[in-house]
Design a protein around this nucleic acid. Sequence first.
DNA 1: CATGGGATTGACT
DNA 2: GTCAATCCCATGC
Length: 186
Amino acid sequence: MRRAFYNRPVLEVARDLIGCVVEHEDCAGVIVETEAYHDSEPASHAFIGLTPRTRVLFGPPGVAYVYRSYGIHALLNAVTEPEGVGAAVLFRALEPLSGIDTMRARRGVSAERELCSGPGKLTQALGIGLEYNGTDLVRGPIRIAPRPRAWRETHVAVSPRIGITKAAELPWRFCASGSRFLSRSR
DNA sequence: CATGGGATTGACT
DNA sequence: GTCAATCCCATGC
């Protein structure tokens, strides 16, 4: 996608990313679940303002924000909105498209539904670690491609975000309706 | 410099 | 259903 795609309100970008394709080297998957985060609400890392950790979130749109969660997992976000606004879309689940055997090897499981059905799972499957924080989503190495034709008319379901304690009531989670590749937690 | 808390996952009861 | 693993970073002394 072009830079202008990301330079829009985070809720629009989070919804429009459903059905698009994340590509990294030989692996790719269709985005079936996202969440939006914005510096105006306390669940966002950017809520505390500009710090070394949140520098990327307040930077230009179309950049990857990757951070470590619970000391174990790397979580991938796409920075949105103009520079100076701290907003990003969390990638929560993909439907595997290509490089599936590579994903199986990295994840250590074989079932396709277990490869990318969670924010920590999909980064492991695609080989995305903290070293990708701040990299460009327009030029790569990680890129987002437009929806394949089959995903052009996908219905998007909206619901509250998962796994947070603050601002948990906001309906800022977006899913491809009926997908069998969503994350399972609540 | 010490402390505490996660935008999670997988193993176990 | 419960729970531990594990580490970056923000905060407070």
